[in-house]
């Protein structure tokens, strides 16, 4: 493969982790709940997938198992933040600590082993013959198609072109208004926080079954946090979120290329690029364009618990 195709191929593959996690976070934040547990959910999803696949060699089963585990943890988180209305930041941090710690503990027996079964490439006929994009996007595993094509389009349609999407966005903007309009605020928050958590865990499964593909301690390496930051940068919209994931995939791919080609930069420094890049992405647009602040505005009630029967 020539350089450009190889670069993009890796970019799509690497970016898929961030894109899927970002999509999950978009769902949660659109209904007004900031889920800082993404990192822990990814870790749990990653180890669940590896454990499942070690037991039965079907990667799709591993992915689904991760989704279920993510949903379960998500429900616990939602119960605390939506029903009991505990502080979302603290609960999210707690979820990250719990998820990361638990995954590390379980993962000791799986460390370093390559995944017993991974997601294989599926070439899409015709489209995979396109120059560059053909090999880069259309000759990937099935999850890539899900993450870059099916999900963002479906979620965009859901959020912005349906009645249900209108209602759920209202929950994130002004839960009191949504409540007065008869929308079940808590039920919607609970449902989408759970769904978002499932997707975050799915991103972890993608990490260990399609990208790396294996488990090791600390394999998530902050990707969950980057995904949370990307959602801010993407203005809480599904398609830009996925594009930002791809952008990150590109930065990561550049790092790999640099290492492979012996660029005179230490590998550790190349590894720093994604984090430094994310910080730049959050800060620079806000500084550069004042108007950006309004365009990228968060749902107005993000992070606030909703109390109906309280003066």
């Amino acid at each position: 493969m020539d350089l450009l195709t190889g670069l993009f191929s890796t970019a799509f593959l690497a970016g898929g982790v961030l894109a899927l996690a970002a999509l999950g976070e978009v769902l949660a934040e659109r209904v007004g709940v900031v889920n800082l547990g993404a990192e822990g959910l990814m870790a749990m999803g990653a180890i669940t997938a590896i454990a499942t696949v070690t037991a039965t060699p079907y990667p799709m089963l591993g992915f689904l198992a991760a989704l279920v585990v993510g949903a379960l943890f998500g429900m616990v988180f939602a119960a605390a933040t939506v029903w009991l209305r505990a502080n979302q930041v603290l609960c999210g941090l707690a979820l990250t600590l719990m998820g990361t710690g638990l995954a590390s503990t379980i993962g000791r027996s799986y460390s370093g082993m390559p995944a017993r079964a991974v997601f294989e490439r599926i070439e899409i006929p015709l489209l995979s013959q396109l120059p560059i994009l053909g090999k880069a996007l259309f000759s990937q595993n099935i999850l890539v198609y899900l993450i870059y094509i099916i999900l963002p389009v479906a979620l965009h349609y859901l959020l912005f072109k349906t009645r249900h999407g209108l209602n759920l966005r209202a929950v994130g903007e002004n839960p009191a208004a949504a409540d007065a309009a008869g929308i079940p605020v808590n039920a919607i928050r609970f449902a989408y926080v759970t769904a978002g958590s499932a997707l975050a865990a799915g991103a972890g499964a993608y990490l260990t079954l399609a990208f790396v593909p294996s488990w090791s301690d600390g394999v998530v390496a902050g990707r969950g946090w980057i995904a949370v930051a990307l959602v801010i940068f993407a203005g809480y919209r599904p398609i830009p979120a996925v594009m930002s994931g791809l952008l990150f995939g590109l930065i990561t791919a550049l790092g790999f290329v640099g290492q492979a080609r012996g660029w005179p930069v230490a590998p550790a420094v190349l590894s720093m690029l994604p984090y430094l890049g994310t910080i730049a992405l959050i800060i620079v647009p806000v500084l550069a364009w004042q108007r950006m602040r309004r365009v990228m505005a968060a749902p107005a009630a993000l992070g606030e618990p909703y109390f109906r029967d309280v003066r």
Binding site: L84, A86, N87, L90, A94, L97, G99, S104, T105
Partner: peptide, 23 residues
């Protein structure tokens, strides 16, 4: 027992503390 387990328990304490604070 690994220190990761300690981290997980710490997370659990934080989680329950957050809930307790609200309750």
């Amino acid at each position: 027992l690994t220190t990761s387990a300690v981290l997980a328990i710490t997370g659990l304490i934080l989680f329950l503390t957050a809930i307790g604070d609200e309750l």
